[in-house]
Amino acid sequence: MFRPPALRRFAGTPAPIRPLQVVVPRRSIFSRRNDRRRSSRAVENLDIQRLAKEAEEWHRQRRIFLWSGAIAGVLSTIYTAYKLKLAIEREHKLDADLPSTDPLAGANAADRKIVIHDEEGREMVPTGNSTVPMFPRTLDLPAFTTPITSPSPDATATPTITTPSGTTEYTLVGLGLRTVTFVGLQVYVVGYYVATADIAALQNALTKRINPIATTLVPGEREQLRAALLDPAEGERTWDELLAAGVPARSAFRIVPVRDTDFHHLRDGFVRAVQARAGPQTMADESFGEAMRQFRAVFNRGSAPKRKELLLVRDETGRLSIAYDGGANKKEGRPAGRQLIGVVEDERLSRALWLNYLAGKKVASEPARQNIVEGIMGFVERPVGTVASQVVPVLNPKV
């Protein structure tokens, strides 16, 4: 019987073994495009709804976090303000419990001067100027008793200082910055000091001008005194009468340049101020003319570097003593410390020079005049005889 070859193999004849063939896809220029198509199909298979829900949840939690931070900030601000209010009220209550004789009684904590101590423990008052940042709250000055009736033109001849009665403490009343020209060029910082022992007489004289039977001024009376001292005509009349009567008996102006200058520049400013205040009749007086020549001769010197101290001191007779602390200089044989450089006996000259800072339509430093008046307000609000040494107004740093 005839069988086909295929049937004969199944019937028992083994088929020939062929090698395994693996089909490897061929790469072409279109292979990368096909890969991208397969990748895009994979992305299309992602769960878009699930991703949207996760993004929405993330944004919701972020909003909750931001709102929580904002609410916490507002609550902390309110809590801090409340605690500060309680602290201020507690301090005011403590102030109210002070006896009337206490120098701090009746003073607002916001109006008090914060006094800073330096490395040596001295009390310093900020000036608001970066070159001369601090002024001492008190000065211990000797009694300048060496008169100079005919000063030598030799600027190196320095008179000696005699101190038979030791030193006198002066307390800062107010300070300010002297500026010139329309651009406000800063020249020096000036501070007005009054002998601590003479403050009571100044308190009494100013108080009696407003209320003859009072020992201290109430708020309305203090405002009346402030307006009088700041008024050009009334303020000049008030200070002229006080200085002519020797009130305060001892006072001083401390001048510290904030830029390098010279004594001739300072002298010219002082001379113009004296001529404007003294008036033509006084200027025509021969003795006053001699005093002016003495005053000019005192400033016949060289440079006045910044941060060096110049003192104008007026004693109980009205005599003007001028001292300068230029620092030690071995080359010139100059010792360290304040050195007396001149004395002018005529009281009218020192009074005109004092009025240049204290009163009038135009003063050498308006910030200094304002600050001095505020310092005086701190004095007259206390009973006569108490030294309000802590109440020194803050100089406005913007000036």
Rank of each mutant, 00 (worst) to 15 (best):
I29L: 13
I213R: 09
I17E: 14
Q49Y: 03
V187P: 01
G235H: 00
A233W: 01
V132Y: 05
M292D: 05
P16R: 13
Y357E: 03
D111S: 14
A233T: 03
Y357N: 06
R272K: 15
S365K: 02
T80L: 15
Y193S: 01
M134H: 10
S251G: 05
Q203P: 00
S350Y: 06
L355H: 00
E347S: 11
R250W: 03
T101G: 02
Q339N: 07
L312V: 08
R296C: 09
D260M: 05
G318Q: 08
V22M: 10
D118H: 05
A323P: 03
R90I: 10
K85I: 10
K362C: 04
E241F: 02
T146I: 14
Q281H: 12
T146A: 13
G375N: 01
G269F: 07
Y324I: 08
K85C: 08
F2C: 09
V274I: 15
T216W: 12
G69P: 00
Q390W: 04
A233Q: 02
G279K: 05
P133A: 03
T127G: 11
P133W: 08
N300G: 14
R112N: 03
R222I: 08
G333S: 05
H92K: 15
P212D: 06
V343H: 14
I64N: 04
P159G: 02
L75R: 06
P397I: 07
F379N: 11
V132G: 00
P99A: 06
Y324L: 15
T386S: 13
P19Y: 03
R222V: 05
E123R: 13
K113Y: 07
A110P: 02
E56D: 12
P164T: 06
K398N: 12
N300Y: 10
K83A: 09
P103V: 10
V387T: 14
M134N: 07
Q275G: 05
G289N: 04
D111N: 12
E91K: 08
P99D: 07
V23I: 07
V22S: 08
R60T: 13
S365C: 06
N211E: 13
I255L: 15
I322K: 13
R60K: 12
D35I: 07
D118V: 04
S350A: 15
H265C: 05
Y170P: 11
G360E: 03
R3V: 07
R90M: 09
G184T: 01
T238N: 02
A328F: 02
E236M: 00
F288G: 04
P164E: 06
R60H: 12
W67M: 09
I78P: 10
T167A: 12
S321I: 04
M124N: 02
G342H: 02
Y192Q: 09
E89M: 14
A328H: 05
T171W: 03
R307P: 04
R41G: 08
G106D: 06
S165K: 11
I213S: 12
A227N: 05
I341H: 01
T13R: 10
Q21H: 13
H117R: 15
N329F: 03
I17T: 12
S251L: 04
E366G: 05
V399E: 14
A42S: 09
L185W: 13
L243Y: 05
S303E: 15
P367Q: 00
R307C: 14
A87R: 15
L349F: 01
R307A: 15
T101P: 00
R296I: 07
L185K: 12
